[in-house]
Design a protein around this nucleic acid. Structure first.
Lengths: 133, 133
DNA sequence: TGACTTATTGCAAATGATTTGCAATAATAT
DNA sequence: ATATTATTGCAAATCATTTGCAATAAGTCA
């Protein structure tokens, strides 16, 4: 928490109660705005949806969080202070697990095929978790 | 076109002028609903947005098209009669190229790490095309 | 070919996610 | 404590997508 306070300060931003709440909720797992919203509100801290969006946008600009996209229409957000990884989504219950892979070979293979300069990629797996099988 | 007429027939559906138009437009490249809409309208065939959505939903159910998701909020659609491949997106001009990769090794690696039963995956690359570099 | 059945369309309104304007509030530096 | 101004809440706007319904037209069959 001190870390993000420092980052905020360096950018002339303030560490508010709402930002702390959103940050703490994101510690668990990637979540949608509605999930973040209800998680924060469960802990008796009212917070507005628009505020959550603005905080997330700010977090992303500061490199604190990142947006992930799992094929449905709503974005999910996770903290960015973790290693590069991908997501595995249960199509039945929505559970999300991380997967760490070594994809260097694949990336090289892709870069070899194109004149584009590849800067990033996203890889998600869809399936059924143990419980739902 | 005969092929899709046959598929429609087998499912008690009709091959309308609008469906033909959407099908032909999709031959080019993955496109958003708005892009499809304006492409069809350019050819002097008026068509409604809701119709495009319904046609695409139908195409997907029949396995004629598939939806792809490139991280922004709007879905893109492409014909499904092509080999398994991935997409490479220029973050500057939006141009989309296909990439064909052999990702068996990676898939096995992912499956080994989890108790989920992996059924599908999506992999997209983001970068800058030659023109935009 | 013409009549008939019903899948399909267009339009307008509903929905759901996200963004924005603005006045009120609260975090920080002094 | 006070002043400055980033930030919040609220309501309304926007954007993508979906839906209800009456009008239209594709395909079938006499």
């Amino acid at each position: 928490m001190e870390r993000i306070k420092k980052i905020m300060k360096e950018h002339g931003q303030r560490l508010t109660a709402q930002k702390k709440d959103v940050y703490l909720v994101l510690k668990h797992t990637p979540q949608t705005v509605i999930e973040i919203l209800t998680a924060v509100q469960l802990k008796k801290s009212p917070i507005d949806k628009a505020t959550v969006y603005r905080i997330l946008t700010g977090f992303i600009e500061l490199g604190i969080a990142r947006e992930i996209n799992l094929g449905d229409r709503e974005a999910r957000f996770e903290l960015a202070d973790c290693e590069h990884h991908h997501h595995l989504v249960c199509q039945s219950c929505g559970d999300i697990k991380d997967v760490k892979l070594c994809e260097d070979t694949l990336l090289k293979e892709a870069q070899k095929q194109t004149s584009f300069k590849i800067k990033s990629h996203s890889l998600e797996f869809f399936g059924t978790c143990e419980k739902c099988q």
